[in-house]
Design a protein around this nucleic acid. Structure first.
Lengths: 196, 196
DNA sequence: ATAAAAAACTAATAAGTGTTAGTTTTGGAA
DNA sequence: TTCCAAAACTAACACTTATTAGTTTTTTAT
């Protein structure tokens, strides 16, 4: 009888979710079975239900956890007193960090949210739309102030966020590019299109 | 007894694949059943097997079909006599067009390829790597010639392709931005980071 | 009209799904 | 040591899955 071992004073629940996240990102939510997750933990599938209440709950935990972090960061950056361009750069760097350090969860939040059951699905989509709207509004403010090159802010947000999401691809590769090179080059490419 | 109706002198097989593509992009490959596809066509699931040999074959058809188009375009652009920057822009515009007009197939090729069975999976990944390498080499040539801003070409390719892939997100939205605005703004954003 | 081929059908299979019920084992507190 | 809760187990359920076999219907060509 194997058992789930918690790591650094986290809960066993967290271990299950982390393990599930790894598989959801590799094989996709729908193609990952509870038995797959259990096997990776050296346990039988029904044992998982001592820690979580359903497969979809795990997905919700991951998606909303990620959303929360991005929203919190945005709030913090918004309340700072930098220039708009610096705020944008700060947000871009945060997204890149997340994609480098928490790419599994972020990937799931980016690509597997569609399997969320209602009413969580609609909630998630609203949060997502809201977040992007705020980014676009920030960009618009920069344009109005003359700090940022005039460009359609919604297209810019789409471009920036999608580009960063692509770092998942780098994670899957043999990574001949180090993290710093990745970050600095990507920031430059994305910011240069906004600079006057 | 309903039947599959071919459109503009295509085969019934093509109808099945197109229909499957629509569902694969909406619900994902693994979450789409043969019964789902059949129902959408007003037919019973086993009838599909008169036109295709397996669910995975459909996925292969879609993924390799898309890959083929991008590779063909690259070949054509490479053999032209424009500047490197113009070649890059041309490729970017082709990717955007594909994402606007054939987004279902392109989305699948971008995100559902992982469900390809071997040996197709390894083949697909190789084609993908190869394509990106060629783009990076093209960029490097531009840098060497002094036409393009010095930047890590692999990061640039990753950034550009991922950004364009995000147009899928625009397709899912209520589309308050028209296609031209989308294309011109995105091209500008992506190219400006490369211009000196 | 007839024969052949294409494409639909029904029925069934074996395997896999998330999850529940009920039971046994484990580990820590008294 | 005894007791209790946490967490593991086995067995099972009710469905769904892709796919095959065998049959009937529909379409096409002669």
């Amino acid at each position: 009888m194997a058992k789930i071992v918690p790591v650094d004073n986290g809960s066993k629940r967290d271990v299950v979710i982390k393990s599930a996240a790894a598989m959801f990102r590799d094989k996709g939510f729908a193609a990952t079975s509870m038995r797959d997750i259990a096997e990776q933990l050296g346990v039988e599938a029904p044992s998982l239900y001592n820690h979580i209440t359903s497969k979809k709950e795990i997905l919700g935990e991951i998606c909303f956890g990620v959303a929360k972090m991005f929203i919190a960061n945005l709030k913090e950056v918004e309340s700072s007193s930098s220039s708009v361009l610096n705020k944008i750069e700060s947000i871009i760097r945060f997204h890149i960090s997340m994609m480098v350090e928490e790419y599994k969860s972020v990937y799931i939040s980016d690509h597997e949210w569609k399997h969320l059951p209602e009413p969580y699905l609609i909630d998630f989509k609203n949060q997502r739309r809201n977040y992007r709207s705020k980014l676009a509004a920030l960009l618009q403010k920069g344009i109005d102030k003359g700090e940022v090159n005039p460009v359609n802010p919604h297209v810019a947000v789409l471009t920036i966020l999608s580009a960063i999401g692509g770092i998942d691809n780098w994670q899957r590769s043999s990574k001949k590019i180090d993290r710093k090179t990745l970050e600095e080059n990507m920031v430059k490419l994305l910011i240069d299109g906004l600079k006057k």
